[in-house]
Design a protein around this nucleic acid. Sequence first.
DNA 1: GGCTGGCATAAGTGCGACTGATGCTCGGTG
DNA 2: CACCGAGCATCAGTCGCACTTATGCCAGCC
Lengths: 310, 310
Amino acid sequence: MLDVRRMRVLREVAARGSFSAAAEALSFTQSAVSQQVAALEREAGAVLVERSARGVRLTEAGEAVVRHADSILAKLSEAEAELEAIAGLRGGRLRMAAFESAAATIMPVAISRFAEQHPGVELSLSLHEPEDAVAALKAGDIDLAVTFGSGKREDRGADGVTHHHLLEDPMYLVLAEDHPLARKRGVRLADLASEPWIGGAPDCECNRLISAACNRFGFEPRIAFETDDYAAVQGFVAAGVGVSLIAELGLRTIRDDIVVRPLGRDTPCRQIFATALDGYRSPATVAMLDLLREVGVTHAARRPVLELVS
Amino acid sequence: MLDVRRMRVLREVAARGSFSAAAEALSFTQSAVSQQVAALEREAGAVLVERSARGVRLTEAGEAVVRHADSILAKLSEAEAELEAIAGLRGGRLRMAAFESAAATIMPVAISRFAEQHPGVELSLSLHEPEDAVAALKAGDIDLAVTFGSGKREDRGADGVTHHHLLEDPMYLVLAEDHPLARKRGVRLADLASEPWIGGAPDCECNRLISAACNRFGFEPRIAFETDDYAAVQGFVAAGVGVSLIAELGLRTIRDDIVVRPLGRDTPCRQIFATALDGYRSPATVAMLDLLREVGVTHAARRPVLELVS
DNA sequence: GGCTGGCATAAGTGCGACTGATGCTCGGTG
DNA sequence: CACCGAGCATCAGTCGCACTTATGCCAGCC
């Protein structure tokens, strides 16, 4: 195979018109250039350079090699530029996934800020509930996921992913406006032991959050209906099918025929994480992780929904 | 600069999914592949491969490198193919020059046969009198010239070109049909000492041939008119401006108002050569040289004009 | 005819690439 | 749970290649 380093030498020879001049330009000795060109001719199986007393001239084969050398060396520079762009966040891509309420709240903020700081990076966001998101991470389909869970686990998970805590997301009780408890002040979870509940999708982290919260008050919630869309949950609650817990991030829009009640000291909190694979992380991933943490802190500082309903 | 050999290793790693498999495919040890990839990562300034317990996966930067590696390696194969094509006469070019009467006679035969044998080679022919042709050779504008001269010089010229003898081109006396000597049998050059002559262009090899021939018979021809086109010479002769000598190759077409007379043992001959630079010659040049020699022999074997007019 | 500019060649040296051996980690398994 | 195997990293050693220095050779030029 033709050696690209040698092709570079030949190109310099062609440009300068002599071995000596090329050697000087490349900071080699004339001897080295002579040997390299000879080796290249051996590889090529053809005479590439016509030697004459005053400098050299390329043969047709030599011209062909130089022509290709130009294009190959250009491609090499291109590759180097692309690497630099990726490392310097002036290029590359970042594929993310988030669950619905995060995708509607913190992600737009984070994405807009990231795009502003690093306009060259191509961003994409898909909707995935935590379980799917982690699977997508492991499959290499995405680089970063925003997930939630009940425990505050900053730990390096044994399964190759690490959850980086972003913020706490307090959950609120939602009732139909004509529910008997809708007017009561200081409702507690224990008051709702016998109510039918609206849950998240089956076998979903969301459901486990509700169960865990109720369990702490000594009862297992009876799930009357399951849906993974907070808007749908609000619909079912409004229709009187049951009551539910909705996290703050899911309460950006609140129907006017339901009431939202804080649970005071009992308030269960879901924990929001940025989740990424352990080991190598692209510069874009690292930058977005930092940014998400920052957005999380900012978000925690002001609690619009809490003020609104308490 | 990124090393193309290492990029090739990375590409194999990407294709096989593990260092070990790539090593086997490349007939290396796993250790070598590991070291090469590590070195490439140092050059690139970025992690290119995510190592895991079961094989490896490329990072985004790694994918970028492999993408470029593909295109670079493709270009390399292309270059190799082109070299092979040039060496095997399946490509490349051959630029030739010939004087007018050769371009009208032996060159069409040679070119047509060459094109048949080596259809991939791009052929071109330009018209140059010997002096210009040799200059063009030295300037590198052409690869091969067909020239003529008076002496039979196969020698390696001191000026860096070699003339390869192709054939002898006998010269004939041409007279207006109403010329007093037109009917005389056995005309000799000495009979024409006082005639006005039509010569070639000033300071042209062609003129020197006429002078040299006349000198041998003890007179210096008086040049009445000079032109480098044999058709024009025939015109002037027909008009009675003077007499001239025209070589056989220039007598493919003969006006009907002139007569052509052989000079028997006195016949001067111009020598036709294929002329090329010493030193490196492309495969196409060598092949055409051989072919021209062959055409020269064939041409010498049958002498249409000689038979026609003697 | 010596001088100069330019390429080739020979011998020596140092770096880098590859090998072989070994250690480490992770995931699967009895 | 301890073991095992697949796979990568690392180390030391060897070998080859690329470059340098030194020299020779050739051609053009004053």
